[in-house]
């Protein structure tokens, strides 16, 4: 329990740090891009909306930095992230709440699947060191060196032509209305297959490699020799003795590298015009839509923190030592 509380405290601290970074970045912008955008929409913005943008981007030169900071926190807690300029006059929070489920479904599931597949392959590769599985390592290294977005482009060219089963863009059939029915689900799954495969192929090798190296290290531990000497089946030694211990560093590595992976996978959305957070970020960057950019960064960071917390709970379940009181 103490472990978990420590982690939660750390994540709260990180969330605070991320929000503070988010507070300071727009204040460091030389010039005043936001003011010019506000002026552009002057006639259409309500006074409230202008005020909220002033607070978010620190345009109110009269207020002290501290009172700006307090106001900013107040707005964030109310879920007010300002108005998007690209999708004027939709509030940023509304856009994000629409696209977040797409990203969580695509990136979340594929990242988890890639971790599971990579880890199991890594267990085999490490256990049977010197077998043909080792020959796969250079191939997977090459695949993991390819940028996600480029692999996506390649996949679209090769697999998604006109008349192909794989659609090349979007999250669902244009005519369908998002709802909880079979037709929509089928279409959504069909659209997510290609991006998901792209992410899987390029992210799986990292897990294979780290798990293989951990298995090689663990395989020479004394307790493995003892397990063999006891006459346990090789399978059991591999799974319950070696893999279980080798898994621990891999899980904590998974938690730590989530930030990297999520950053990369967001680009896949851009290539496939997938209606998720990453595509929002792309649109925001193109249009210099600062409120949307800030909102995207905030949401991504908070989601990664939640994912990290889940990985920590998994670690807690896997490693009995952390459950010990005291």
């Amino acid at each position: 329990m103490k472990f978990l509380l420590q982690r939660i405290a750390f994540y709260l601290f990180t969330a605070w740090a991320a929000l503070t970074i988010n507070f300071f970045i727009p204040r460091l912008i030389p010039g005043d891009p936001v003011t010019s955008l506000i002026n552009k929409f002057q006639g259409q913005l309500s006074t409230d909306a202008i005020n909220s943008l002033y607070v978010l981007f620190g345009l109110d030169k009269n207020a002290s930095l501290w009172s700006q900071y307090v106001d900013y926190w107040g707005q964030v807690f109310r879920g007010d992230l300002g108005l998007s300029f690209t999708f004027f006059p939709t509030p940023v929070s509304e856009i994000l709440s629409q696209s977040l489920p797409w990203t969580i479904a695509l990136v979340g599931i594929t990242t988890f699947a890639s971790f599971m597949i990579g880890t199991s392959l890594g267990v085999l590769a490490g256990w049977r060191r010197g077998s043909w599985l080792d020959g796969l390592l250079p191939v997977t290294t090459f695949l993991s060196s390819i940028p996600y977005f480029w692999l996506g482009l390649l996949a679209i060219t090769l697999l998604a032509g006109p008349g192909s089963f794989f659609p090349s863009s979007g999250g669902y059939e244009p005519g369908l209305v998002p709802s909880w029915n079979g037709a929509f689900f089928g279409s959504a799954i069909q659209h997510s297959l290609l991006p998901a495969i792209t992410i899987l192929i390029s992210s799986v090798s990292g897990w294979i490699l780290s798990m293989r190296n951990m298995m090689v290290t663990v395989a020479s531990e004394d307790y493995i020799t003892v397990a063999h000497a006891k006459g346990l089946p090789v399978r059991r030694v591999m799974v319950s003795y070696a893999a279980r211990n080798a898994l621990l560093p891999n899980v904590s590595g998974f938690a730590l590298s989530l930030g990297f992976i999520v950053g990369g996978t967001l680009l896949v959305e851009i290539v496939f015009s997938y209606p998720g957070i990453g595509y929002n970020l792309f649109q925001a960057v193109g249009a210099k839509d600062y409120p949307l950019m800030q909102g995207v960064f905030l949401v991504i960071t908070l989601s990664v923190l939640v994912a990290n917390l889940l990985a920590d709970i998994a670690y807690l379940l896997l490693d009995p030592r952390t459950r010990k009181e005291g």
Binding site: A17, L258, G263, G264, L281, V304, N308
Partner: peptide
Amino acid sequence: LVIPALPLIIIVAST
């Protein structure tokens, strides 16, 4: 380490 680096880089670079 925990804050996603790429979105941060994108936002800082674009400002």
